[in-house]
């Protein structure tokens, strides 16, 4: 959009195992983003939950199709003890050349306990480097997410709603209140004027626009944010500047 820079923090690319909506490659995704006026996106591979570790290579490969430098990739981590991923220095050292800017985890689908024993080595390295961690894989398991945040309070993380359309304020607000590095992404948070309430209570810099494309379209959340009742400056932070700042702040 000419008047507002949108950087989507919740977006997937690739062909889903069970069909449905998708953007198979960078060109298809960029075309969808252009339709709605979204400039940039932080992108996961759509089958990350079921195709790790192939998915990490795939997202890097698909990003090569973006010649305009509008897409930034997300890689998925696993417990370090099984040696499915390189050691932290090598892992994070390869982010820049592969245009990766953040990590995520799927402890439910990948069947492990998301704690210091399993992920400590990688997540301590992520916290040290201020690499954003997308929390999209807890599938509404709030007690597990709460335990995770207790174990890793220093993380820079972005909670990505993935448990339906009912506003999760009773669970989200305690996390926003207690962990300064905890950020909230807006896709699926359809609470009337709720974005403004969260921004006013916890700071607009803690809230990030996301679409959850391809399940949702980009446009619905854009209008919701633009008319959230916040000042133009705060809307601009949430629309794109916050994510841009988080990614720039990562030491890669």
């Amino acid at each position: 959009m000419e008047d507002l820079f949108f950087f989507d923090s919740n977006c997937s690319i690739g062909m889903p195992m069970n069909g449905g909506n998708y953007a198979a490659d960078a060109a298809a995704l960029l075309s969808e983003m252009d339709y709605s006026g979204v400039e940039k996106a932080l992108v996961r591979y759509i089958n990350t939950d079921i195709a790790i570790p192939y998915s990490n290579a795939m997202v890097a490969e698909l990003l090569k199709g973006d010649t305009q430098d509008r897409l930034t990739g997300v890689w998925t981590i696993l417990p370090s003890q099984c040696h499915e991923l390189p050691e932290p220095d090598e892992f994070f050292g390869s982010f820049k050349e592969n245009r990766i800017g953040a990590i995520t985890l799927y402890p439910v689908e990948h069947r492990y306990v998301p704690c210091r024993l399993t992920l400590g080595k990688l997540l301590d390295a992520a916290a040290e480097r201020k690499v954003p961690v997308l929390l999209n894989g807890f599938a509404g398991k709030w007690s597990e997410l709460y335990n995770f945040m207790k174990e890793f309070p220093e993380l820079t993380c972005i909670y990505v709603e993935r448990c339906g359309k009912w506003g999760s304020d009773r669970n989200i607000r305690p996390l926003l209140e207690n962990y300064s590095g905890f950020h909230f992404e807006t896709a699926g948070y359809w609470v009337p004027e709720g974005i403004a309430d969260l921004a006013n209570e916890y700071g607009a810099e803690r809230i990030l626009y996301g679409s959850n494309f391809p399940q949702y379209n980009h446009g619905n959340g854009m209008l919701q944010l633009k008319y959230s009742g916040l000042s133009a400056e705060k809307v601009a932070l949430i629309a794109g500047k916050n994510l841009e700042n988080l990614l720039k702040g990562a030491q890669l």
Partner: peptide, 18 residues
């Protein structure tokens, strides 16, 4: 479903549909 869902979100979903 107001007060469950925001009017701008829902109208946005309609008017940004193809």
């Amino acid at each position: 479903d107001l007060p469950w869902f925001d009017e701008f979100q829902a109208i946005g979903g309609v008017v940004s549909a193809k």
